[in-house]
Design a protein around this nucleic acid. Structure first.
Lengths: 240, 240
DNA sequence: TATAATAAAAAAATCGATTTTATGGCAATG
DNA sequence: CATTGCCATAAAATCGATTTTTTTATTATA
């Protein structure tokens, strides 16, 4: 398929120990956390072929770590749902299945709408500022189509900021997880410039609706936003 | 607190490799999977004190495994949310916080009600049989108050069976995760025989409503069921 | 006495080697 | 010709020892 096979991994330069927007634990930077972050990125942006079995030996070479931290990272990723683990036969990149994507998108809509409602309730002036800022960064990133990674990061942060004050850590946790899953599909799908334009516009509209606390309109829009993106992401799947 | 400190772990006899109701991966039985299951159990049933730091050295002794599989299990548990991991300072049992329990219970209600609706839609005759069977096992377990573990297992399986045919793997995954979190609170809280009796009765009523596909009544009941249990579980928390 | 610097101890993380288990090829058998 | 059993190879999992980092204890200094 469109994906790149194992031997071709052009090896992501691993994030520096003290990277700013560091994922979860990676600040203190153990080898395990660094590989976790790097591998997670590479999985989401489709640097491995769907369904591919991971050769631990090559991973060791590519990510420049020993077996123990590498295996710890793989175990975390499997528990997180970005890898499949079968007991005496290692780790495998999950296949891209249409029914699974539909499941993910449906839940995402549901959970994000709930979070949005609560965010509108608890969000204060500080939140509004941060949302404006996040949106501005996103628009700036829009102008540099050559730096995909930066746009992706800005996009992720925008959606995070939008829901951040919802007051429910577990809800945010699940949303993040679903978002990661969703993005793996989306980023492997062929882009659609027309839809992309609409999606970009919706970000701005979401900001406006958030400022005005127009909850029901905002929910409808967020739902449509995810639905549109869902349509694009479907392009990543083959048949079933 | 009510919890038992590390040195007192009376050591769960680890589940045999080919245990029937085996958790996730444990069937093939690697050392890592076995410790994972055993540790998970011990965490949920409150064999560690909340907030306690885990001494990897003692764990190695208690669970009779080497460092590598033990660390892999700990990494999985942290990714799952049953442990907190800080980069150069090991693993810690999460504290029991009232606001977190409320968060968990609220989400649980929401997600389980959604799953229930879908289960009513997709569940077939086979499901009805399994639900009756699961309920029967639960009632039998009710009669043996001395075997707590068996009741707990039957109870978990009942709730799993109830929602199983909902058709959404990710929804089930999150529900399972929340259930595990919830149970850690519930099992550490002082029991309330009065409430317990009501909860037991509700299981039967849920079965009846499921057979008749009375969705709105069933949703209300499930919501109340979780709410009641939530009230009991709150007893596990101290102040905030 | 409080603070800071330092050394010793403990714990976490990592490495390299070993053991165990799966996999693929090939011959023997029905 | 398909199936089974065996061996060689490769991969996964585990162990034991080493390295790195944190924590604790101790002393020196203001």
């Amino acid at each position: 398929m469109g994906a790149i096979s194992q031997s071709d991994i052009m090896s992501t330069v691993m994030s520096t120990p003290d990277a700013s927007g560091a994922d979860s634990v990676s600040s203190g930077a153990t080898a395990a956390s660094r590989v976790f972050d790097a591998l997670k990125q590479d999985l989401i942006c489709g640097r491995f072929a769907a369904g591919e079995k991971l050769a631990i030996g090559s991973l060791k070479t590519h990510y420049r770590v020993g077996l123990s931290p590498l295996r710890e990272a793989l175990n975390r990723l499997a528990a997180y749902g970005l890898l499949e683990q079968v007991n005496q036969r290692g780790f495998r990149v999950p296949a891209l299945r249409l029914d699974e994507l539909d499941d993910i998108a449906d839940l995402r809509s549901q959970l994000e709408c709930k979070a949005l409602t609560q965010a509108f309730q608890y969000g204060d002036a500080e939140w509004e500022s941060q949302l404006l800022a996040a949106h501005h960064r996103l628009r700036r990133a829009d102008e540099r189509p050559e730096h995909v990674e930066e746009w992706e990061q800005a996009h992720l942060r925008f959606h995070r900021t939008l829901l951040a004050p919802c007051g429910s850590p577990w809800l945010l946790r699940f949303i993040e997880q679903l978002h990661d899953q969703f993005d793996r599909y989306r980023r492997l799908a062929p882009p659609d410039p027309g839809v992309r334009e609409v999606l970009d516009r919706q970000h701005g509209e979401l900001v406006q609706l958030a400022m005005a606390r127009r909850i029901s309109q905002a929910r409808a829009l967020l739902d449509e936003h995810i639905g549109l993106s869902h349509g694009v992401a479907r392009g990543a799947c083959s048949a079933p």
